[in-house]
Simulated scan of single mutants.
Amino acid sequence: MTNSGYTLPVFACAAAVAALHWLRQRQALTFSSVDLITPAEIADIPIEQVAGISKNSALAITRSDPGDNLDLTKNTPIWAMVTWYEGDGERVIIQGGEGIGKQLNNDGKAAIYGYAENLLTENLQRLLAPGEKIIVTIILPQGRSLAVRTSNSAFGVVEGLSLLGTTGISQPLSTPDQLTAFRDDLKEKASQFKSLVFCIGENGLDLARKLGINPQQLVKTANWLGPLLVEAHLLGVQEILLFGYHGKLMKLAGGIFHTHHHLADGRREILAAHCAIASLPCSHIHTVFYSPTAEAALKHLRHLDSTTGSNWTNQIYSSIVETIDHRAQEYIKSHSNREINTTVCGSVVFDRDRQIITSSKTGCMLMEKLC
């Protein structure tokens, strides 16, 4: 049976509860009970250490456990420092310390989102006496180093990780149980529509809705693109639009159909190969290959176009999306022995600002039908 574990905000809340308990009782908890709110259940989280920092401050440490999910935060320490304060303001003020990312598109605000804020506020307010107020600082000592292994910077979060999610239960997107759930969703939608849109994550789903695509035709795939492409074909889906962030979706152009970074990457190799195919000068291919992220490589190409009047970005990304279509249909054909016409695949890729970079020819056709 799959162990789902809990999301990062739950462990941050557990540490904060333990730190507040120390301030009030001068006792160290070995477990913190956290009301998850969503779902409506209580989680008992082990606490590794609690210490008083001063008369008015305490620090507690716990450790992330996302269950069977292939999550880079597994076993990472989470610290919470709680400090009494007096004056005007909310009863619970939540702020990000070292290792919590900053939102570039929100004046550098800490990347602590709605569910995390609500979880911390609800659980901590219940423990406060009338008139008491606290400042809670969440610290991820390894957050800055772990962040470089994510695509956070592609979506405007820098210098650390985010406290995000809409539930306290970790969704193991890379486990067979989750693939079963995705397949069930696909089966339901395939029974209603012959054209579907595959989105790897929430950014794609959100942008697709904003562009006017029917939400009922959207299928979340997480990293399971390969199995779900084959499943859709076997279910009789005639057309699939692959709609995603370029740093993820371009992996398909290299024949990588399970896109989790723990299993395979190849983005810079794919980008550099298509740069070479387009005859980009060697010095710029070198820059693209050694760019720290796909987004940085894209920025270099766009800067080159703007300063020289060239059209490298469109040439290179057009080559990539056409290859995505070709490789996707090859994958379906090679993994299915059903003698029916192969499902038509088209692709659309967007950047960190959720602006579409380009679409394949088939992707353009499908977008016109779907929007």
Rank of each mutant, 00 (worst) to 15 (best):
V321S: 03
K248E: 05
K361V: 14
S319C: 11
L119S: 03
A147V: 05
V136S: 02
T175H: 15
Y331E: 11
F11D: 01
L242E: 03
L196V: 09
S162R: 13
T313E: 15
G101H: 06
E188W: 14
L186T: 01
T323R: 12
L72Q: 04
E90R: 11
E231G: 04
W22K: 13
N214W: 04
G96L: 03
N223M: 02
E330Q: 15
K74P: 01
Q192I: 10
R352M: 09
Y115V: 04
I340Q: 14
I200G: 10
L205Y: 02
K133H: 11
I112K: 00
L72D: 00
S191P: 01
S359Y: 13
C275W: 03
G114E: 14
L298E: 02
T287E: 13
C282D: 11
H335Q: 12
N341A: 13
V82F: 07
A116G: 04
L146E: 00
G5P: 02
K251V: 08
I53M: 14
A190C: 09
L8W: 05
L211I: 15
E41A: 13
L20C: 08
I316T: 03
Y113N: 05
L205H: 07
T30K: 12
G346R: 05
W224F: 15
H335R: 09
V92H: 02
G204L: 07
G165A: 08
E98G: 09
H258E: 08
V349P: 00
N223P: 00
A181F: 07
E117P: 02
S4I: 11
L164H: 11
T137M: 12
T121I: 13
L173R: 10
S33Y: 12
L249M: 10
K248Y: 02
A43F: 07
W79M: 09
H262K: 11
I42F: 13
V34L: 08
I316E: 04
D305V: 06
D185A: 13
Q27F: 09
P281N: 07
K55N: 12
I61E: 08
L235M: 10
Y331N: 03
L120K: 04
R352A: 14
E159A: 10
L241S: 05
E98M: 09
N75H: 13
P176V: 11
K333L: 15
D185G: 07
S174D: 12
D71L: 10
E330T: 15
T287P: 03
A60V: 04
C199L: 06
T73H: 00
L218C: 08
A129L: 15
C282Q: 10
S33E: 14
L252Y: 10
I332R: 01
L72S: 01
Q355K: 13
A28M: 06
L301G: 02
L225H: 11
R144M: 12
V288N: 01
W224K: 02
I93F: 06
R302W: 01
A110Q: 00
G99Y: 05
N152Q: 08
S153D: 08
G87T: 04
I37S: 07
A296I: 07
L124G: 00
C199K: 03
S170P: 05
A273K: 12
N311D: 15
G96M: 00
A12E: 03
H326W: 08
S359L: 14
V17P: 00
G244S: 09
T293N: 02
G52P: 06
I47G: 00
G114L: 14
